[in-house]
Design a protein around this nucleic acid. Structure first.
Lengths: 225, 225
DNA sequence: CAACTCAGTGCACAACTGTTCACAGAGTAC
DNA sequence: GTACTCTGTGAACAGTTGTGCACTGAGTTG
């Protein structure tokens, strides 16, 4: 072991990782004011403190950087929901907990969430599709989790997907509302949170009376002609 | 009235109106592929067939053009919903009719809706706020309409707003899903429509068992501490 | 018919964009 | 210690952007 880079081992890769992160951070911050498609490579490198051409040492494209940002964002989101499901007792508990965790995480990673909300239907097709795929996956995960609740155990997977989709959409709308609310206005935010909770409760009330079209009667009006 | 421009009266203003419309149309078409903030004045004028500087004869700004587009879009939306409420018998009728009308109008004015969906959380603050205001107003209108239903007559305005918001959000999500679906794929779209109907039905089922926090018990957990 | 209005033109400018290329110099490998 | 690797540099390119300015010429007006 003559000179196996004894203690400052990752010095080179570490430096690279750091400027890469600087690029991502700079982009994320710039994206609070404008949308991705209008964000230029030069702006990002300028904010990151490197020369434009050095960008290509880390990403082939601005699009590639955008996809990495999406991946980052949903990684935190996934961590969030895992916490929310750690202690699932009743639906009421889950509702209250989910909303709380959603809110706190939106605040903690607000730049990421703002980026996601903005690009969900933004100008860059690749980002749109990536985000849409992640949300779909998210709803799918929720559906399998919902299957564990006693009062939903008899539901068809189709109905569970329906319910999960409705819940996820409500959560997405809530997150978007929080991001759009005036910052440092606890009253406005409290109302959003309260509304989110009531909405979810209203939805779960519908669950009690729900009877699937595909189960009880015939499968009427569904994609099967 | 010696020469009150007898029959070709609006020739001049008409020509102006026409190129103005050409600008708006060109912008709308370009906006199908990219977001507003990345759309340049020159692109629009190029597509409209005029020279860049002539743009200023019609709009002071690109932003002003954007706001006009939003106004246009919601004008058609408003016309739509007026039709949907023309014959309100039962909630079931209203649901089915609303979804149908929404779908047909999204198709008819898909460029407008795509623009709205894209800029709802896009990079330009002025457009975001304008759209958000219009949607809020939309939900408000729906709430007053809901008040006419027998089974909702006893509801508080707060609860009606809640319900209306939930419905509008679901409709918005549906419209966005339709726009994002592969075009000319009737199966995918039929599924979206079916899901929308089922979601709305699930929500209205919740209505039956709903008991307002502010009415029956105390106003628990609301913004009043 | 002469005078005027004004939508659209054409040129110019400085600023910014993405990407190329040869090159520096610190970090690493042997 | 020498040779190599590779992140970041700096100049240069062709292209695009928004906007100012003096203009043309058709449409309108009295």
């Amino acid at each position: 072991m003559h000179s196996r880079t004894p203690d400052n081992s990752a010095t080179r890769l570490e430096r690279k990782r750091r400027t890469r992160e600087a690029l991502l951070d700079a982009a994320l911050e710039l994206l609070e004011d404008e949308s991705f498609s209008s964000l230029s490579l030069r702006q990002v490198t300028r904010a990151a403190g490197i020369v434009p051409t050095a960008f290509y040492r880390h990403f082939e494209d601005m699009e590639e950087l955008g996809l990495v940002l999406i991946d980052e964002s949903f990684r935190t989101l996934r961590a969030m929901i895992r916490t929310a499901r750690a202690d699932p007792r009743t639906t009421e508990h889950v509702i209250r907990g989910s909303v709380e965790i959603l809110v706190s995480h939106v605040h903690e990673h607000d730049a990421h969430f703002r980026f996601i909300a903005r690009e969900r239907f933004g100008g860059v097709a690749a980002l749109r599709h990536a985000i849409r795929g992640e949300i779909r996956l998210f709803a799918s995960d929720l559906a399998t989790d919902l299957a564990r609740f006693p009062n939903l155990r008899s539901w068809s997977t189709d109905d569970l997907q329906l319910l999960a989709g409705l819940i996820v959409d409500t959560m997405v709308a809530t997150a978007e509302a929080i991001l759009d609310a005036p910052p440092d206005d606890p009253a406005a935010e409290a109302e959003i949170v309260a509304t989110a909770g009531r909405r979810l409760r209203m939805i779960t009330l519908g669950v009690g009376g729900w009877r699937s079209e595909g189960a009880g009667v015939a499968n009427a009006g569904e994609s099967r002609p």
